[in-house]
């Protein structure tokens, strides 16, 4: 559409200005990421004396060795994986059921039910009363406390509803009615198979949310063996260092004190790797999801 060569002088100056501005922003975002990567592969001494600026100094993988020898990290990964997979499954099912019901224009009372859901987006009982609820349901310190609360995000439901309304024509509903399909049958046989794209978006939204969540775990879980990866990371990144006593290898124990910083950098990298690996393949879905959400329905 716009081409630099055909632009007149004023526009050329504008383009150069924009180009520089965006490049500065681009580098501002990219540089810390590269720095963390380089620091994680450098030696503890080099990081502590501030020698690392762009590329690794005295390259080694000490930080990663220690990280992978810490049991709480492995356990956290396993727990997080379990919480994320189950909560995502539950969340996507709940969202699709609700979105389907809300997408049916021929449902008497639809607007009232919609208001019932939407109101919870803007007003809530808050942290304390939710905590008391979870406590009285007996979910404190159980794995279920990480899966059941927050199963329905109304925002995601609206996105899914908009998608169903816009991508499945009403004629399909009428045709299936003629063929004797029930309302529940229509949901399972027609709506779900035709909603794969939006379900991919939901899996990503909900999955990333649960993978990154920490606060519910902090509130509801007491035992360390139930902790998700984020809480394990929090203990190491923000409070203290890895407790040398939890690492079996005595040689590694001696190293830990020296390399506190590179351990943290290595941890940051390790925690970002799963997302960076799947990132290129999910990016287009994220964009699609946000775009569907922006269409008012």
């Amino acid at each position: 559409m716009d081409s630099f060569k055909q632009a007149d002088r004023g526009d050329k100056i504008f383009y150069i200005f924009v180009f520089l501005l965006l490049t500065v922003f681009f580098l501002l975002v990219l540089y810390p990421v590269i720095f963390v990567l380089s620091a994680s592969f450098s030696s503890g001494a080099a990081v502590q004396s501030g020698k690392v600026l762009l590329l690794p100094v005295e390259p080694n993988i000490q930080g990663y060795k220690i990280v992978f020898n810490t049991p709480s990290i492995w356990r956290g990964f396993a727990n997080s994986l379990f919480y994320t997979v189950s909560a995502t499954l539950a969340g996507v099912s709940m969202t699709m059921i609700t979105a389907y019901g809300m997408s049916r224009r021929d449902l008497p009372g639809r607007n009232a039910i919609m208001m019932y859901f939407v109101f919870t987006m803007f007003f809530s009982g808050g942290m304390i009363t939710s905590f008391l609820l979870i406590q009285s349901l007996g979910l404190i310190n159980t794995r279920l406390a990480m899966i059941i609360p927050g199963m329905l995000s109304v925002y995601n439901m609206i996105i899914a509803r908009t998608f169903i309304q816009n991508s499945i024509p009403e004629d399909v509903l009428e045709a299936s009615k003629i063929d004797g399909c029930s309302d529940i049958g229509y949901f399972f046989r027609i709506v779900l198979p035709l909603s794969k794209a939006i379900m991919a978006v939901l899996v990503l939204f909900i999955g990333v949310y649960h993978w990154n969540a920490y606060f519910n775990a902090m509130l509801y879980l007491h035992e360390k063996k139930l902790y998700p990866i984020t809480l394990a990371l929090k203990e190491i990144l923000l409070s203290s260092q890895i407790d040398p006593a939890t690492v079996q290898d005595p040689e590694l124990q001696a190293q830990i004190a020296k390399s506190a910083d590179i351990i943290k950098y290595a941890l940051i990298v390790v925690s970002m790797v799963p997302i960076l690996i799947i990132y290129p393949s999910i990016q287009k879905y994220f964009v699609k999801g946000v775009m569907i959400g922006s269409v008012k329905g």
Partner: peptide, 23 residues
Amino acid sequence: RWQIYLLLAIPVIYVFIFNYLPM
């Protein structure tokens, strides 16, 4: 449309317990 109401009963009850009870 009773089947749809049946489906919607799940989220309606869920939201009642986890959103409206705390309110």
